[in-house]
């Protein structure tokens, strides 16, 4: 089972990213379960979500303290202690950032993916909502699933031109994420 923790802010689509990935895993015959943790729903407030992806049904209903993968949609949190807390050895991180050279380090970080998801989303759907780009980039970084199930999962969350735009977002995220190994 892979345990993934998502960090972002209300309005960035953190919750939807985690739902899309759970949906994509289900489409491969595997199991996914994800949930966010916040108080009142509001834009701009920090949001954390938790995703568990496995070939067996997921039973745990607790938050994730020892993640295998970190997904950071809000670049301002990239070096926060709270983000890195509990990252397991050989850990991975996916970061939404416009910086050419990102300053991220942690003793357990083995693989880093960086993608300018806001820019891609602005170009494709006209809104700086990074979630579907991130979902596509997640597939590439982790290798846990292919891009097709991620793109197919989007039909449960978008329709019409928004669906088409977000499929392009996910595919560009998959293609354009820059990978670094440590």
């Amino acid at each position: 089972m892979s345990e993934v923790r998502f960090h972002g802010r209300g309005g960035q689509g953190v919750v939807t990213t985690s739902k899309i990935l759970a949906n994509a895993f289900a489409r491969t015959g595997q199991f996914g379960a994800s949930f966010p943790m916040f108080g009142f729903e509001r834009r701009g407030a920090p949001v954390t979500a938790f995703g568990r992806f496995s070939d067996k049904p997921v039973r745990e209903k607790t938050q994730i303290y020892y993640p295998d993968v970190l997904v950071v949609l809000d670049p301002s949190q990239q070096n926060s202690d709270a983000v890195f807390q509990g990252l397991l050895p050989d850990g991975m991180m996916l970061l939404n950032s416009s910086e050419k050279e990102v300053d991220v380090s942690h003793e357990n970080l083995k693989k880093l993916g960086v993608v300018d998801a806001n820019k891609i989303a602005l170009e494709e759907i006209g809104l700086p909502i990074p979630n579907t780009v991130i979902a596509g980039a997640f597939a590439k970084l982790t290798g846990l699933l292919d891009i097709e199930p991620v793109a197919n999962a989007l039909e449960d969350y978008f329709e019409g031109s928004k669906l088409e735009g977000n499929i392009v977002c996910a595919k560009r995220g998959f293609e354009e994420v820059a990978l670094y190994e440590f």
Binding site: G32, F35, M37
Partner: peptide, 12 residues
């Protein structure tokens, strides 16, 4: 059913 832990949990 538990709020937050199930209300917002996406699963199969």
């Amino acid at each position: 059913y538990d709020g937050f832990y199930l209300s917002y949990l996406s699963e199969v």
